[in-house]
Amino acid sequence: MMQPMVIETKGLTKHYGSFEAVNDLSLLVESGSITGFLGQNGAGKSSTIRMLLGMMRPTRGTGQVLGFDIADPAASVRMRQRIAYVAEDKRLFDYMTVGQLIAFTRAFFPSWCHDTERELIDEFRLPLELSIKKLSKGMRTQTALLLAFARGAELLILDEPTEGLDPVSTEKVLGLVVRAAANGMSVFFSSHQIAEVEQVADRVLMIDSGRLVLDTSIDSVKEHFRRVRGVFAEPHDSAIGALPGVRRVDVDGRIVSVMASHNVNEIVRYLRADSATNVEVLPVTLKDVLLGSIGTAKR
């Protein structure tokens, strides 16, 4: 059964002068899911998130978060009462102590989770009396995560949440993400750490040059995505790209390599019929799929 959507955009576009940061982006994020939002640096992830949060206005297109119109400032305030966000730049108010910052943030959220607050203070060993400016980058990230997780939000939007964290802290954070989702929270997180996304996400969205190039579930990647490699006697230029399921075709002399999202049997038959001397079907990782999706955005 289809879950209600927590994020829905149609034709979302953001231009900075002549630069197209986000272009005609239509995406859906289901309630209760952990959705990884992937893309290279500068692909448009942060701009998309900032539009969703009402920090910047779309040049074109519409969007709703938890049913609130992202272009309506009053609706955006009500929406932010129900979401938690950790920005890519995790600088916090240097003129506050950790304790002051927690108390400050708590005042905005009537459904603040005091248990989560206490638990994360202990888990991250955050010194409440220490000034924010004296915190290491990792501790600042942990403080930002505490302020997000304790909000008692319905939707958690994380922009590169594990950046600057050591492997142990990264694992803790990923564990928190999974636990939040298990408690009914929807999670939308951007990252360029593919392994993290593969570890925790149910679904993955990828943008490239501001356009959506991949929208699939992690299970679908594992079950349906395959690389089909055909070896030909002579250098070969195949027209296989027109077949359904073909996401990308790479030709390297006599070898034609096809990334397929489905329809693998038909692709194999086509290569054999096209006189391939050897055809093999290989499993793919999420990383292969993502790398295969870069550059497929149609301008």
């Binding site: 009053a74 305030v77 938690a84 920005a87 600088r91 905005f108």
Partner: peptide
């Protein structure tokens, strides 16, 4: 410029 605008604007308060 200070790097805290994203945190401030994520709070449920109007500009």
């Amino acid at each position: 410029a200070y790097g805290t605008a994203a945190f401030t604007l994520s709070l449920p308060a109007s500009r």
